[in-house]
């Protein structure tokens, strides 16, 4: 999650953007969705964290937080849309809970929030009605579903490391100790990178055949 240093260090900052981004990142870190989700939090309207290019963007105001949704950078850039203004911490999180779960519920496969939003009949207004005014009576259910995901978070690396059975697959060859002999690196600017086909002649072949 991207954030600026916010009011802690910056002379312009009006809220603790790093603190909020920690809360949000820790809350949603285990969530799986139809496509990747990007977040950012800026400490004031100067917007150093570029929150308006994210799926969920939060920008601090004098009175709380402005929430932006459905932005996208990358190949098809789209500015996020202002969804709600001057929210307190709790309401902000509640809206994001509902928003994400509603997206997960209704999006197509591999559909980013920006494309999903464009395909939503009724557009932003409809989305506001569902999330803010709870026009479908779903809000509580969405929040509960999110809370379940939050409560069952587990670090996937740690989970795998505990179980030798799960680590079985982490072998290049099941019947041989060696690594993949066709992976070759060369150094560039002081670091390794994959060798290109045209560079392979530099690497002796015969040794490996034996």
């Amino acid at each position: 999650m991207k954030s600026c240093v916010g009011s802690t260090w910056c002379r312009y900052g009006v809220q603790d953007s790093v603190g909020m981004s920690l809360v949000l990142e820790n809350r949603y870190k285990g969530l799986r969705s139809p496509h990747k989700l990007k977040f950012a939090v800026s400490g004031c309207t100067r917007e150093c964290a570029e929150a308006q290019s994210k799926d969920v963007g939060v920008i601090a105001t004098d009175k709380g937080w402005n929430l932006y949704v459905c932005g996208n950078g990358g190949m098809r850039p789209r500015h996020a849309e202002l969804f709600a203004t001057d929210l307190d911490d709790k309401t902000l999180i509640r809206y994001i809970d509902r928003f994400l779960m509603f997206y997960i519920r209704t999006a197509d496969k591999l559909q980013r929030t920006s494309v999903w939003r464009e395909s939503l009949e009724g557009g932003l207004e409809y989305l506001k009605e569902v999330i803010i005014d709870d026009s479908l009576g779903l809000a509580e259910e969405l929040e509960a579903q999110m809370q379940h995901v939050v409560d069952t978070y587990e670090c996937e690396w740690a989970n795998a490391l505990q179980d030798p059975e799960k680590l079985k697959r982490f072998r290049t060859f099941v019947n041989d100790e060696r690594g993949d002999p066709d992976i070759h690196f060369v150094k560039e600017r002081g670091q390794r990178r994959p060798a290109r086909a045209s560079e392979l002649h530099l690497i002796p072949v015969t040794e490996e055949a034996l």
Binding site: H35, K38, F39, W157, T172
Partner: peptide, 26 residues
């Protein structure tokens, strides 16, 4: 085959970033 070793050395300091998943990333 290096992944488990790398994680076990990282894990005291940092946890998975889920960058591999369709999930919350940046």
């Amino acid at each position: 085959h290096q992944l488990p070793d790398i994680w076990s050395e990282l894990i005291e300091a940092v946890r998975t970033g889920h960058a591999y998943g369709k999930s919350v990333r940046t």
